[in-house]
Design a protein around this nucleic acid. Structure first.
Lengths: 259, 259
DNA sequence: GATTATTAAATGGATCACCCATTCAATGGA
DNA sequence: TCCATTGAATGGGTGATCCATTTAATAATC
């Protein structure tokens, strides 16, 4: 009667809970440099008392930070909560969750991967160093070994590593992290496809050799073209025999810790 | 004596703990589609009994998943643990942690941002739709409003939104997520710089208008050039008067929930 | 004396039994 | 019809207690 509800959308208030406060305080210490990788937090019993909370609540916070890759909890005397080196694979977990929740689609992920890899190839051409070439070379040789011996599933793992090395060859860990994030799940699909159908990419070693040669010559146009073609071929392989794979099945395998 | 320690490096085994198992099981249900956004998990007391663990341990798992953006816990009768829509800002948190832990540097983040935005501009030129242009247009107008009224800090928030909209204009949520992740922290630095020194970008509205015009014409070369120049100018602004800003200060502000 | 077994303390892992605060539907009175 | 009250469901939080693992100190054995 006296006016309809206002059209503004109110976001629900998250009542501030103890464990959130604790997480933030610890992150704050990390940000200001008071805590660094390798450092140890006080024992749970002490820290709980310092913060004025129960041990249970403190543990909820520590667990959350452990899941976030910030802490590592270790038992025993001389154990404790240690600040970890940053775990770059946390971004993969986020990507996986987004996919599981339907926030992003496998199609969007694949498209993004193509674009990111195009960028990565250009950057790698510009920035790759001798050590990067050697690591990629060794990877290609392992790929060919697995091909010869018919160890196709191991070859898929090898392929994932190839893209990881390529990301690192850009000389920028942020780019490397993004590259791995958009690649990991894709390779899980490939793995599941190969495992279920037995089909796999033909002439993979040859393709890799050509690509690496272009990279070594810092021939951006050639390297980018080869990568584009390769990704297209892989996509075609994945899409043939439709219905043999489903998002649910592949994701379920991913989460059941296939690796 | 009888041989030095083997050169192989053993990674420490993470003894499988109950809360990890629980997290995995819930994520597995998400992956197989048995749980979808909006769904409610059983009450803590029930679920704990079903899983055969104590309520405290279950809560550690639920809290971790809440921190990961997968669940939302709500009090009261009719409350419970609800599966959330995917929270794309979780990637920002990962990026922040990596910076705090020193795994990535602010320099790497800035470089990655330049590269990612170059890609974004190209994609936005190709894929942006009328609604995207309109949202960007509205953003530019707000930018000009804030400029006229000297509300510089609000203008920075507006700028962050600009890049967010640009990411969305690519028509790919993965790209949009990445764009936001590499932009958020950068804008925090800009915010801190503006707040501390009062200096700010000159002719920002004009630059935005030019860029948006190029985007509307789908003129990739022009749009990319304008973006590149702009990012360079911003970088120069940030670097002048060195020492006025530090990573620690900016990160501390970020973590104390400036937003 | 060197090696090996034992012991004890520190610390995270987990459980149980409570109590509080919030939320919302049902109830009942004005 | 409307509003106040009440009570049950549910997450938020506490404290005490025990277990399992790890390490160092100690004792026993060769």
């Amino acid at each position: 009667m006296a006016g309809s509800p206002a059209p503004v959308a109110f976001r629900p208030i998250h009542t501030r809970r103890a464990f959130e406060e604790i997480c933030d305080r610890i992150r704050e210490q990390l940000a200001r440099g008071a805590l660094k990788p390798g450092d140890k937090l006080p024992p749970e019993r002490d820290l709980a008392q310092q913060l004025g909370v129960s041990r249970n609540v403190l543990r909820e916070a520590l667990r959350s930070l452990e899941m976030a890759g910030v802490l590592r909890l270790q038992k025993g005397v001389k154990g404790g909560a240690f600040v970890q080196e940053g775990d770059t694979s946390r971004m993969n977990v986020v990507m996986r969750d987004m996919l599981s929740l339907g926030t992003i689609s496998i199609r969007e992920l694949s498209e993004a991967r193509v674009q990111v890899l195009d960028l990565v190839v250009r950057l790698a051409c510009a920035n790759a160093r001798q050590a990067d070439f050697e690591a990629l070379q060794a990877n290609v040789e392992r790929t060919e070994l697995f091909t010869r011996e018919g160890r196709l599933l191991e070859r898929v793992e090898c392929a994932r590593e190839f893209y990881k090395l390529l990301g690192l060859a850009c000389g920028n860990k942020v780019i490397a992290m993004i590259t791995d994030a958009v690649t990991e799940i894709h390779m899980r699909f490939v793995y599941a496809k190969v495992a279920s159908s037995g089909v796999a990419m033909t002439r993979l070693g040859e393709r890799r050799r050509q690509f690496l040669a272009a990279l070594r010559e810092r021939n951006v146009a050639a390297a980018a073209r080869l990568m584009r073609n390769h990704l297209g071929a892989v996509q075609k392989m994945l899409e043939q025999d439709p219905g043999a794979m489903s998002l649910q099945i592949a994701l379920a395998e991913i989460n059941s810790g296939m690796k």
